[in-house]
């Protein structure tokens, strides 16, 4: 586990993504997988092939080279119908109208910070500050797949019907789990996402 900061930090996150990219380009013998998160990169290795000291040495040589890595990331557009069951409550807490919440949500440029929790749950950073509200005190069950939810300064498109304590402001037909075996996940970590309102429904 490599830790670049103890709290969420933009620079540390860029360092995580740079090392992740460098490692993918130049893996070591016995590399299993890397899991990028906000400020950490989890690197899994096969102990039958290598050991921790060897892996650490390899990562050190990458670390300096990684700083030169340019992180572009693909862009994606996601259409949203802003009719979520929590839209009114989000508007009240933020002191905005429902239409202003929708406009504000679309004004952000989001980045896939990490996947986590469950298959295809892409945590999107870049939620505009006026919408930064805490999660609900208790999770709500059976929130349907395709919900656009926000909490703690993040946005997420749900892929499964699951309980969540985040606020449901809308829905989308964008499929993060594509069902396409050649490209099963729509987004890569580091990709940019832009939301726009589907005025005539989906």
């Amino acid at each position: 586990m490599l830790e670049f900061a103890t709290a969420i930090d933009k620079e540390a996150h860029r360092a995580v993504l740079a090392l992740d990219a460098a490692l993918a380009a130049q893996p070591f013998a016995g590399f299993i997988e890397a899991v990028p998160a906000f400020v950490t990169l989890l690197v899994r290795f096969d102990p039958l092939v290598t050991d921790r000291a060897t892996v650490e040495q390899h990562l050190k040589t990458l670390n300096s080279a990684a700083l030169e890595t340019v992180l572009a990331g693909n862009r994606h557009e996601v259409s949203v119908v802003y009719d979520g069951s929590d839209l009114a409550e989000v508007a009240r807490q933020c002191g905005l109208s429902e239409a202003e919440v929708a406009r504000c949500h679309q004004s952000g440029t989001y980045e896939v910070a990490m996947y986590g929790f469950a298959p295809g749950y892409a945590y999107l950073s870049g939620l505009p500050a006026p919408l930064a509200i805490d999660r609900k005190p208790n999770a709500v069950r059976n929130v349907p797949a395709g919900s656009v939810i926000i909490a703690g300064g993040m946005c997420l498109i749900t892929t499964l019907t699951m309980p969540t304590g985040w606020w449901r402001i809308g829905r989308t037909d964008a499929q993060v789990l594509t069902g396409n075996p050649d490209r099963p996940f729509a987004f890569a970590v580091g990709d940019k996402i832009q939301f726009n309102e589907a005025k005539n429904g989906l």
């Binding site: 299993i32 997988e33 890397a34 899991v35 990028p36 989890l42 899994r44 996947y115 986590g116 929790f117 469950a118 298959p119 295809g120 749950y121 892409a122 099963p184 996940f185 970590v189």
Partner: peptide
């Protein structure tokens, strides 16, 4: 299915 933790799997 190893190797997919980076996608939440």
């Amino acid at each position: 299915r190893p190797g997919l933790m980076r996608f939440g799997v």
